[in-house]
Amino acid sequence: MSANTAINIFVRTVNRCRKNPFTISAESNNDIRENALNVFSELRKEAEAQESPEMTLDEINAEIKEVRK
């Protein structure tokens, strides 16, 4: 089945049923939170292991101001 055919079938099913034909689910909130905290901890360890930050706080704030303009 081509991607075009699959998309057409999906769109027709949504149109006919008036809902998403697939069940959408996620892990429990506790699992998501635990995974997020683990990833955050790993990223923090990597940042602390660097001898100097890639950007100063002033440089970060300047970039934020530019994006908000």
Rank of each mutant, 00 (worst) to 15 (best):
M1K: 10
M1Y: 08
A3E: 10
A3T: 06
N4L: 15
N4M: 13
T5S: 09
T5E: 15
A6L: 05
I7Y: 06
N8R: 08
N8C: 03
F10K: 07
V11A: 13
V11C: 10
V11G: 00
R12Q: 07
T13C: 09
V14L: 03
V14F: 02
V14P: 00
R16C: 07
R16K: 14
R16H: 11
R16A: 14
C17L: 15
C17I: 05
R18W: 00
R18I: 02
R18E: 13
K19D: 05
K19M: 12
K19S: 07
N20W: 14
P21K: 04
P21S: 03
P21A: 02
P21T: 04
P21C: 04
P21F: 07
F22R: 00
F22L: 06
I24E: 09
I24T: 11
S25Y: 08
S25T: 12
S25K: 14
S25A: 13
S25H: 11
A26R: 12
A26P: 01
A26C: 12
A26T: 15
E27I: 02
E27C: 02
S28L: 04
S28N: 08
S28V: 03
S28F: 04
N29D: 05
N30H: 03
D31H: 09
D31A: 15
I32F: 03
I32S: 07
R33Y: 06
R33Q: 12
E34P: 01
E34Q: 07
L37C: 03
L37V: 05
N38H: 04
N38D: 06
F40L: 12
S41M: 09
S41V: 00
S41K: 13
E42M: 12
L43H: 14
L43M: 15
R44Q: 11
K45A: 01
A47L: 15
A47V: 08
A47N: 15
E48G: 00
Q50T: 06
Q50P: 01
Q50A: 07
E51R: 13
S52N: 11
S52A: 13
S52D: 10
P53T: 05
P53E: 04
P53A: 06
P53D: 03
P53Q: 03
E54N: 11
E54T: 08
M55F: 11
M55H: 11
M55S: 06
T56K: 01
L57V: 09
L57W: 02
D58M: 01
D58A: 04
D58E: 05
D58Q: 02
D58K: 02
E59I: 01
E59D: 10
I60F: 10
I60M: 13
I60T: 15
I60G: 04
I60D: 08
N61D: 13
N61Q: 15
A62E: 07
I64M: 10
I64Q: 10
K65N: 05
K65T: 07
E66L: 12
V67R: 15
V67K: 15
V67N: 10
R68D: 11
R68Q: 13
R68W: 02
R68M: 12
K69G: 12
